[in-house]
């Protein structure tokens, strides 16, 4: 699709967003890529760093309150990125905010997830929200790939309108091992450490 190619070209021109496969190699295995989140271009940067054949089956998880508002953003999110929109604010009782993600995973798609839930000012990730834990429990065979997005917080810090051209690297770390009966806080800390580990 022309607009996707344009978007990828623009991201490469501005920030490079070249992949570095450190702990794993590109593979069509179903995966959840989870990364630190500091700028609006994170989603597109990680997505462009994937090889085209994987990109076609990998869907970014995007917040409905940002990507779902405005016709252009919504068009880019749904048509170009094939994003899964989720509601990160309060939802009605009884409905699970993760259910759109379950649907995507059931269909065999891979996901791109930012477990901090919101953009951070600093380079290293803050605390992770519980979503990743629930997905990991429900889909034990999906590979969990920690990803560190280097320099994107410098290129487009929170509050900036335009990204500044700074070379950013997308660093793919070692798949997160599964440990039986691990409790939620321990798992989330370990996942966060894995993202930090991919930074080195």
């Amino acid at each position: 699709m022309l607009l996707s190619k344009l978007l990828i070209g623009l991201v490469r021109l501005l920030v490079g967003a070249m992949p570095r496969w450190i702990g794993t190699i590109p593979s069509p295995t179903q995966r959840i890529y989870f990364a630190n989140h500091s700028s609006h271009i994170d989603t597109v940067a990680l997505w462009s760093a994937l090889p085209p054949e994987l990109r076609a089956r990998t869907r970014p998880v995007a917040a409905a309150d940002y990507w779902g508002t405005g016709r252009f953003k919504r068009y880019v999110a749904l048509k170009c990125l094939n994003a899964v929109l989720i509601n990160r604010n309060k939802t009605e009782a009884g409905s699970n905010p993760l259910s759109p993600l379950f649907e995507a995973l059931d269909r065999g798609d891979s996901l791109i997830l930012f477990p901090e839930g919101t953009r951070q000012l600093q380079a290293l990730p803050g605390n992770f929200k519980a979503g990743l834990f629930h997905l990991a429990e429900r889909y034990p065979n999906v590979e969990l790939i920690p990803v560190y997005l280097e320099n994107l917080n410098r290129s487009m810090p929170k509050g900036a309108i335009l990204p500044v051209p700074i070379t950013c690297t997308v660093r793919f770390g070692t798949p997160l091992a599964r440990i039986a009966n691990e409790d939620k806080p321990t798992f989330l800390n370990r996942a966060r450490d894995a993202v930090i580990g991919a930074a080195q």
């Binding site: 490079g16 000012l121 900036a160 500044v164 051209p165 700074i166 070379t167």
Partner: peptide
């Protein structure tokens, strides 16, 4: 010049406060 400056700034420790000056330089 664009790619050379991009490399130069990538290696230079800038702060969020430089964002506007950098936008000016590039754009």
């Amino acid at each position: 010049s664009f790619f050379a400056l991009r490399e130069f700034i990538t290696l230079t420790p800038t702060r969020a406060g430089d964002h506007r000056a950098l936008s000016l330089a590039f754009f």
